Computed example of a mutant assay.
Amino acid sequence: MRIAVVILNWNGKTLLEAFLPSVIANSPEATVYVADNASTDDSVSFLKAEFPHVKIIQNTTNGGYAKGYNDALKHLEEDIFCLVNSDIEVTKNWLTPVIETFKAEENTAVIQPKILDFKKKTHFEYAGAAGGFIDKYGYPFCKGRLFNTVEEDEGQYNTITEIFWASGACFFIRKDTFNTLNGFDETFFAHMEEVDLCWRAFNLGYISKYVSSAVVYHVGGATLNASNPKKTYLNFRNSLATLTKNANGNIFFLLFARLSLDGLAAFKFLIRLQFSHIFAIFNAHFSFYARLPKLLKQRKELTQNNTEYYKTKSILWSYFASNKKHFTDL
């Protein structure tokens, strides 16, 4: 079973210098690629000089995470794609349990490793933790991280378990599955595209798994920090698109409820006087309304699975009203 480890890079020479050596040293089973998203720094010349054995794919435009990987992966022939952020440190033998799981479980199409915080290695990392889940209204959350409550890794999630979505920070997928799904939705640009892809996979009967014995450390926010309003905009816009395309049931009821909940989120930003994030939510909604006809058309073309997709009906209610701060409380 051949595996390609693909690092998407955009003006990230510093990150490549810091983290690429760990990927190379600990991935003897894989072919390592760097997919450059039309960088304007000297990333490519640096790679050619310092890591001549690493294969470079040069995309002609910066289409973000979604298009960047779609463009890069179409050239590859390996059986398994491993998509790795440029700010990930991997550990010894991290690929072995993933490969073993893929070999043993034919219907497992997507895998996420345990993602710990590079800056606080005793704790899970915000973007992925021990695997992703979703509530009825399309709000994502993780095992090991609910909103800003990040758990310490005490071995509480040290089993291979089924999850709903795998983090794009370190994302394994079978090539055949990726092609069947036509890759990421490029209109997302960045954020939530992995949730959308996993939801489409779920609706076709594929399984996503969390493999705890594969461990990586993620810096997080290296490309777009959580405090950046653009990240708020992309997360809200793309989350609404994901829900519209993939959720079963009465989509208009779900959207009405979801839009009301987004209003509460905007009110929370208002209390904190974070006006730029309020405008980001409004802009996300206006963009969503403009795209709604196309999204509804996509919905008709896609399969919606009648299997219950959500872990809890409302993660907002569970966390803020019922004070359930840990995944095991849900």
Rank of each mutant, 00 (worst) to 15 (best):
Y126M: 14
Y206L: 04
Y233T: 00
I315K: 03
N235H: 05
K311D: 06
T14G: 02
K294Q: 13
I99Y: 00
T303L: 11
Q304D: 01
Y139L: 14
K325S: 13
D71Y: 00
L259C: 09
I315C: 04
Q304S: 10
M192P: 01
F178D: 07
A169I: 04
V5W: 00
G138C: 03
V84G: 01
K297M: 07
K300R: 14
V150L: 09
P140E: 10
F282A: 05
F256H: 11
N85H: 11
S212D: 08
G63Q: 09
G144S: 09
F118V: 00
S43D: 15
K230W: 13
F81G: 05
R174L: 09
A222F: 09
R272M: 08
G132A: 04
S39L: 00
P229K: 06
S208W: 03
S239C: 09
I281Y: 02
I88A: 01
T244M: 06
R299M: 07
T101L: 12
G12T: 08
I160C: 10
A290E: 08
N37M: 04
Y65L: 10
I3A: 08
A130F: 02
V44T: 14
H218G: 05
V6Q: 07
L259T: 03
I315N: 10
N37V: 03
G68N: 05
V216R: 06
P21F: 10
F236V: 15
D36L: 06
Y206W: 12
S45L: 02
L116K: 13
A18M: 04
C170H: 13
V216K: 04
A166L: 08
Y206C: 01
F147A: 06
F81I: 06
G183K: 09
E50G: 01
N203A: 12
A265D: 08
Y69W: 09
I57M: 08
G183L: 09
N148S: 12
S276R: 09
G131Q: 09
V90E: 02
V84Y: 00
S239T: 11
A72K: 02
T14R: 05
F267M: 12
E186A: 07
P21Q: 08
F202C: 02
S322L: 14
F171N: 01
Y139G: 05
N306G: 03
T159M: 09
E125N: 15
F288P: 03
A265F: 12
N248E: 13
P293I: 15
A222T: 15
F141W: 02
D79A: 10
W317D: 11
A290D: 07
I278M: 10
L240A: 10
G205P: 02
F164S: 00
M1L: 12
Q112C: 09
I7V: 15
F184D: 05
D176S: 13
P28C: 12
H191N: 12
K120C: 11
L47I: 06
F19C: 10
Y139V: 15
E194W: 04
N148L: 02
F267C: 03
T161R: 11
D36S: 11
F133D: 12
R291F: 13
V211N: 01
K231H: 14
I163Q: 01
L270Y: 05
T31H: 08
T61L: 09
I207S: 00
A66S: 15
W165R: 00
F81D: 06
D176Q: 11
Y126T: 03
T31I: 12
I281E: 01
L197E: 03
L15H: 15
